[in-house]
Design a binder for these strands. Structure first.
Length: 179
DNA sequence: CCCTCATGCACCGTG
DNA sequence: ACGGTGCATGAGGGA
């Protein structure tokens, strides 16, 4: 088990704080101006408005990594393949170089996954495939998630890296219609 | 064309 | 012998 990420824990919290500050600042400045001019609210620049709405969208949905499960995610081989872009955007920036090296090594990195639906903790191996450059969860993915949760092709799951607890949060977002 | 992703297959360790 | 894993390959889509 690797000890994940002292560094990004700090980074992440910095990110969070700055997100909050952005929102507060905009509102604050709008309010301050409003006290001297009643029409100030209408004078927010486009830039400011866009910032606010973008930040709010991100804040609403913590499960940034979503996957509609494919046949090979749940049957036979049972490994969970993640999109490269999502991993690069939402996971790698928060990890230490050591951890990233582990992920890209043959052995992969052992990561903890918190199942938010059943409140249980599981460990999996997370690695980058050398040939296709994709990122996969293997190991207990089939036993602890596919079998235990009864996941099927077409189900949508959500994941995100939680730097505070140094683990992934997992959730089943939508079940495909069962026959 | 190139890149990404899903899947099939071969190989390797364990029982 | 078999299940799990690494890797190759092909399909599919965007530039």
């Amino acid at each position: 088990m690797i000890n994940f990420f002292e560094r990004e824990r700090h980074n992440f919290s910095t990110d969070n704080v700055s997100t909050e500050l952005t929102l507060l600042e905009s509102k604050e400045s709008a309010n301050n101006s409003a006290s001297t001019s009643s029409t100030s609210n209408n004078h927010l620049s486009l830039e400011e408005r866009r910032d606010v709405s973008i930040e709010l969208n991100l804040y609403e949905d913590p499960f940034k990594i979503k996957k509609r499960l494919t046949k090979s995610d749940v049957s036979g081989m049972c490994r969970l393949l993640l999109k490269i872009n999502l991993v690069k955007q939402h996971i790698l920036p928060y990890l230490t170089v050591t951890s990233i090296n582990e992920i890209e090594s043959k052995n992969g990195a052992r990561v903890m996954i918190w199942d938010h639906d059943t409140m249980s903790l599981h460990s999996m191996s997370f690695k980058k495939w050398s040939s296709s450059k994709s990122y996969v969860f293997i190991d207990s993915w089939s036993k602890d998630f596919v079998n235990r949760r009864g996941l099927m092709e077409g189900d949508e799951i959500g994941l995100h890296w939680d730097s505070y607890t140094s683990r992934f949060n997992f959730r089943v977002l939508e079940r495909a219609p069962r026959n």
